[in-house]
Amino acid sequence: MAVTVVAIVRVRNLFAVAMLGGIYSLLAASMFVALDAVDVAFTEAAVGAGISTVLFLGTLAVTSQQEKLPAHSQIIPLFVCAVTGAALIYGSLDMARFGDPKAPIHHHVAPLYLEESQGATSVPNVVTSVLASYRGYDTLGEVTVIFTAGIGVILLLGSWRRGRRKKEDEEA
């Protein structure tokens, strides 16, 4: 994955960058499978490697294939990235060790969900029952976010705008 990231940063041809992004997502998906998070891996493979790569390519078709050389110096962005990265790493030092059974995340509501959801919902996949039932409000919000995103794309790039422009052309 690190090699892919370096390649994404170095390569100037955006077509290659889109493809490398897809490869990165696929690697991330296999990492999620190795961590037993199959649902997340599913999403990452379908969205990251599939749809977003195609959307990148669709955007490339209407813009240009080559990345422009940066007009300003790159030192300030590098500095910002380094500081943010250092802050994130510093924050992760306080996290519980991977797989630690004493971690707080395993002691709040997780045991309740694991014990109850089988009997309460008769849905064997705990991920589904937590997402859809225990966290129903959150999921409703997520669906609304996706809906809003779709509406935003239609409003910004949608055909109704071109239809109006065509009409204006005819009138003129």
């Binding site: 199959v38 649902d39 599913f42 999403t43 379908a46 969205v47 599939g50 749809i51 849905v123 064997p124 996949n125 991920v127 589904t128 029952s129 997402l131 859809a132 997520e142």
Partner: peptide, 14 residues
Amino acid sequence: GDFGPGGGFQAGVI
């Protein structure tokens, strides 16, 4: 999706 991995979101994307 209620028995295996997956659900509405993944299905929609596929």
